[in-house]
């Protein structure tokens, strides 16, 4: 019962934060709402027996990734943007209808396939703690882990190259403009 109450409160916080992201006028507020959403999800991960993933969620997602987002928002000065309907007038009503249709579909299939049966078995001892996750990661998933390191390296080099080229091009175009 305590778990159910906690789930309802945390789920309400997560949904409210997501709606805040949807409706926030200011991009910085939207980013902070997303941080709140990620903290709520970390609490849900803890309830689901995934303490390691919950901590990684807070440090990597709410910490590193969102700081990068906030940094770029403030760097570009793109907090406020005129949010009118855009060139296609029927886009937003259609988006709402399609979103509701998607939600109804998924809800139907989730409850049809899984039901609302309560599984009372507690998780096995040590399920999801860093020890168990580490053993599985470095035995069963060693190759994907190494591929991930290459992916991060490629992403880092790619980000640097993209920004560096942009600066060179902007500098050359401004020089051309002066001449």
């Amino acid at each position: 019962m305590a778990f159910m109450t906690l789930f309802i409160i945390t789920g309400a916080v997560a949904v409210a934060a997501a709606l805040g992201l949807l409706f926030a006028r200011n991009a910085v507020y939207a980013a902070l709402f997303l941080v709140l959403n990620m903290f709520a999800l970390a609490v849900l991960y803890l309830m689901l027996g995934a303490p390691f993933i919950a901590m990684v969620q807070i440090t990597v997602y709410a910490g590193a990734i969102m700081v990068l987002f906030l940094f770029v928002i403030m760097l570009l000065g793109a907090e406020q943007l005129k949010e009118d309907g855009g060139p296609i007038a029927w886009q937003r009503p259609l988006a709402l209808v399609l979103g509701v249709a998607l939600l109804l579909e998924v809800t139907y299939f989730v409850f049809a396939a899984l039901g609302t049966g309560v599984r009372l078995l507690p998780p096995p001892e040590g399920f999801g703690d860093p020890h168990a996750v580490g053993l599985t990661l470095f035995q069963q998933y060693l190759l994907p882990f190494e591929v991930t390191s290459v992916l991060l390296l490629v992403a880092m080099v790619g980000a640097i190259v993209l920004v560096k080229n942009g600066r060179a091009r902007a500098a050359s175009s401004s020089e051309a403009g002066e001449q």
Binding site: F3, M4, F7, G11, A14, V15, A18, L19, L21, L22, N37, L44, M47, L48, Q91, R92, L94, A95, L96, L98, G99, V100, L102, L103, V106, T107, V110, F111, L114, G115, T116, G117, V118, R119, L120
Partner: peptide, 23 residues
């Protein structure tokens, strides 16, 4: 304990809000 379907429903709800926000 909370049924798994509730968590999946919450995930679906968050996914839908994200998709609508993209549009």
């Amino acid at each position: 304990m909370v049924p798994t379907s509730f968590y999946i429903f919450l995930a679906a709800l968050l996914f839908t809000i994200g998709a609508v926000a993209v549009l």
